[in-house]
Every structure is written in structure tokens, then in C-alpha cells.
Simulated scan of single mutants.
Amino acid sequence: MSKDDVILDIILGAIRRETEAFRYYSDASKQSPYPETSALLRQLAEEERKHRRILVQEFANVKKLLSPDSQEQDDSLLEANRIRYHLPAELPFQRVRTVPGIDLAAVSLPTHFISGDYVESYPVHLPEGADGQLGLLLSDVMGHGMEAVSLKAGVRQVLGEIADDDWERLSQADRLVESLNRNLHPLCQKAAGFVTLCYVLLDLQRGEMSYVSAGHELPVLIDSAQGQERPLEGNQLLIGLDRDQKYSLERASLRAGDMIVLFSDGIMEAFNPREEEFGRQRLVESLIESRSQDARGIVKSVFGALDDFLKNEALTDEATLAVAKLKEVGR
């Protein structure tokens, strides 16, 4: 192994360990019977998440520096690869597919087409006639510019092939994510980038959601009747790091009125002029306050809360939000 490979291998190992530490602290915070300990564990999980993001960016930087055709980039070029925008007055809602019983709405900013975020929905109709299943996917390419767009295109291509030829895999979140990881691994290595991804399958007949989170923020599950979050567990390794990674399937029960929310970290990591982070807790509070509205209304309320928080400060990362509200379960 060359010295260059050793350096990259060390960074990849560090990313893996940060992911494991994040998962441990996050899961432990939900199991702790003491609020003080739970708060401390959540804080530690947040620190590990930030460390992982720094390491992923460092891996990309080092790989570019070690590339034989790498060239020095001036400040203007680096600036061109950054994004900076304000929330629009009218949100550009995506056209999404759904199934009877699920009210679905999604927005991806600054634009659905030129962005590292990708959100899609898949009504699943299996040969045996099972109905009432909906797959939701949100991926986030770690980076900006054309490399991020290229990786996002790879995600769309692989998913498109699966949707055309293997609908059964869409009903098995673990198999789907493993397939995506195998297919995207070469592209991730070439682009020196990684993909975080969450895939959720909502099954109305069984009253159950199954999901896999590959390095992505876990979905928010809101119990509308109780007006509180039901915490989820199971954050796993991000896409593109280990081609042979096995992903485990997580499950949670569903009831009519429940709300399932997927989001990118551009929302959670938005900062106001005081350098305060919007954070997951503010997101959850906004979702609970708006739970009586339909899916579009909830999305508008969350972005409205974010806009108030930002106080005209610009966003510097893509911000994507998808809300699925269950109108009926067990039909």
C-alpha cells in the first residue's frame, strides 16, 4: 500500500468510527431514563456528526491534492462551488407520487435540479396485489458543484433502473440501500465524495414503517394524537465508504394521523446572525405546532419558522423537506 493510500485509508477508518460513535450516542440518548444524561448523550452525538462531516470533506480535499492532474484553485473558483441563497416567497413544491391514504408534499431548495439533495417517492405495487405501500427516499451528496450533481445523477440512474426492473426491491429497504451502495461505490470513490441516504417504506395495511438510514439524519415520526415525537433509532454507515457494507432494517409502528418527515441537514444546520443553529429540536417543535395542517401546510410552516429564525441570513447548504401525513392506516 502506497503512502497516499495509507493516508486515505486512515481518514476512511476515522469516518467509520465517527459514524459508529454517533450511532451509539444517539441510540443511548433515547434509552437513558435520566433527562440530564439523555441531553449529554445527544450533545455528544451532535459532536460526532460534525466531526464526521469534517472528515468527509477532508477526505475529498486530500484525494484531490493527491490526484496527478490536480491544480491549485484560486479563491474565486472555490467561491463558485459554494451556494448562498435566501428562502423564496413561494416554495417550489415538487410533483410527487403517493398512494391513497398518504398526504405527501416535498420541497428541495435552492432547486430540485442543480442540488446535491434528491427526494423521490415510489408507490409500490407488488405482484401478489399488496397495495398501500409508499417508498420515500432522500439522499444528500456531501459536497457542492458539478461533482455533487454527478453523484446525484448516479443515485437517480440506479434508482430508476431498480424502479423499472425490480419493484420488489423497493419493498425491502435494506436490500435497496445495499444495492445502491454497491452500484454507487465506484462513482463515490472516483468523485472523492459520499452520499448520505434515508429510505422509508410506509405500509398502511400493516400499520408499519421500515427504514434504513445510511449516515443520514433519522426521520422524524410525529404522533399527532399525542403531539409528540416518537424517537427512531438506527443510523448506519454512509453510502460509498464500504462496497460490501450490510445494512440492517429498522421498524416502527404507525397510526392514523402520524406524520413522517425526511429532511436534509441544510435545514438543521442553518445559522442565524447570532450564529445559533436551527437544529433538530426547533424542527420538531415546528412540526408539532403545525400537525393539524395538511402536508403542504406543514412544509410551509416549517420553512416559515426557519425564515423567522434566519432573520434574513442566507442559507449556505441545500435544504430539502418531505412530509408524509397518514390519513388512514390498516385499511
Rank of each mutant, 00 (worst) to 15 (best):
A39K: 12
S2V: 00
I288C: 06
P33K: 11
D203T: 08
L109S: 05
V195L: 11
R95V: 13
F263K: 01
G143L: 08
G297M: 03
R97D: 13
A21S: 15
A45T: 00
K325A: 01
D140N: 03
P219Q: 05
D307T: 12
V155T: 11
R53Q: 11
E313R: 13
H216E: 08
I288T: 08
E217C: 09
R49L: 15
M259K: 05
A173Q: 12
V323M: 04
N81T: 06
E217A: 14
V200L: 15
R182G: 04
R251P: 02
T316C: 12
E161C: 04
A324W: 06
Y118R: 07
P68Q: 05
D165E: 15
D223C: 04
V149G: 02
H112Q: 10
D69H: 10
Y24L: 03
D164V: 06
A148C: 12
G215R: 00
I267K: 01
L170D: 12
L136E: 09
I10V: 14
K246E: 13
I239A: 06
S248K: 05
Y247D: 02
Q172N: 15
R16Y: 03
M209T: 13
E47A: 12
K3C: 01
I267S: 04
V299Q: 02
V155M: 03
E277K: 13
P231C: 10
Q133A: 01
D174Y: 02
S121E: 10
A153W: 00
G154P: 00
V261Q: 01
K246C: 11
R274E: 13
P92K: 10
F59E: 11
T320G: 02
P88K: 10
F59W: 12
Q157Y: 13
S67F: 05
V56Q: 14
N81E: 14
G234I: 01
E48F: 00
F303A: 02
S70E: 05
N272V: 07
Q57C: 07
Q157D: 06
V200K: 09
L283F: 09
Q57S: 15
P68G: 04
R243I: 12
Q236P: 02
G297R: 08
V195I: 15
E90C: 04
T316W: 09
L41C: 05
D294R: 11
D75N: 11
